[in-house]
Write a protein that binds this DNA or RNA. Structure first.
Lengths: 198, 198
DNA sequence: GTCTATAGCCGGATAGAC
DNA sequence: GTCTATCCGGCTATAGAC
């Protein structure tokens, strides 16, 4: 294998780990599976990271950064109705879920693994902090765009949205019931809209 | 160890497995950890079950049966208001969550593990089927008691309740934020009440 | 710096004594 | 029937050749 800077090697390993986690789950993301995915040797792994947990910490950081970037990219332009906007935002996630359920399962597994591992606990908290911040930012932009306010603090409503989408995700992962997913999505949207003060 | 019938041994192993899963997670529930918890030898395990997955299947079955029994035990008597009843039902679960978060984490891990394991997939589906049936039964009894109906099918609303409590659970497991848990609970109750047709 | 080889441990499952 | 002892594979991490 050609020489790579440690930074590049870490980058490649994080990407490979994410790929394995998304495809086969946290349980399957062994150092061996990760280096195989990255096309490098086992020793190279330990040259870039001292331990598997250190790599997983970097993986969670990348996921968190990814959400921050997604927030910046989100477009909420044009003269759209409040209901349509709320529906579009939730549906956008639900489509991601339907397109790649294993990925979402991997993300939940990653959170659960993190909170079982003392050194990773704070990282897991940061992960959810990023989820909440993302949802809150979207809610805030919707409120501004549609000139409405919420009956509860935006941060709390954001938290509810994350909780509801997580619950939706678990339901779909287990049952794979498309019809229920669609109808549950509508109920989640209705629950959010209920908290809008026009 | 004294002689035990295979049935008794299985019973003991399922209980021990559940204890380990609730305390340390599915990942830690190795055959060795389970037999240590049950106070028996490793060989005795394989005398009662042919494989670890076979035992885990039995564990999920016990969890499912436990929910069915809990439903039968639930009391919804007395002239209570609809709002108080809905709040009490949700709060009852939230108190279980606060009292033993590790247990709820273990149950979610068990579901995720099951859906990653082809032979256990149907069991996971049954587990959620039992959750839904439990919630639906409670909703039905509340509706009957308070003489109201729901704007959507009771089965769908039950599904929403399970999804929301799952999401609530993940949020609390990660953040351990008591204040947020309380306020999220209120939002979940409000979301359910929104679907009541008086 | 990168590799192969291996140490050392823990996992599920089994053999064979009693 | 129940045990101890063991096989064997996979894991993380490291040693040492190049």
């Amino acid at each position: 294998m050609a020489r790579m800077s440690v930074a590049d090697r870490r980058e490649a390993l994080v990407g490979a780990a994410l790929a394995v986690i998304e495809r086969d789950g946290v349980h399957a993301a062994t150092t061996r599976a990760i280096v195989a995915e990255a096309g490098m040797s086992l020793a190279s792994f330990h040259y870039a990271y001292t331990s598997r947990d250190e790599l997983l910490e970097a993986v969670v950081r990348r996921v968190v950064d990814g959400y921050a970037a997604a927030e910046a990219d989100l477009e909420l332009d044009g003269p759209v109705q409040l209901e349509a906007l709320a529906h579009a935002a939730i549906s956008h996630y639900v489509e991601l879920l339907r397109a790649d359920p294993a990925r979402e399962q991997g993300m939940i597994e990653l959170s659960l693994y993190s909170i079982r591992t003392p050194e990773l606990r704070t990282i897991a908290t940061a992960q959810y902090g990023a989820y909440h911040a993302f949802a809150e930012s979207v809610l805030r932009r919707i409120a501004e765009h549609c000139e409405v306010t919420y009956r509860v603090e935006t941060a709390l409503l954001a938290r509810m949205v994350i909780a509801m989408t997580d619950g939706l995700t678990l339901d779909y992962l287990v049952t794979r019931d498309e019809a229920a997913l669609e109808r549950l999505t509508e109920l989640v949207v209705a629950s959010v809209l209920q908290q809008v003060e026009r």
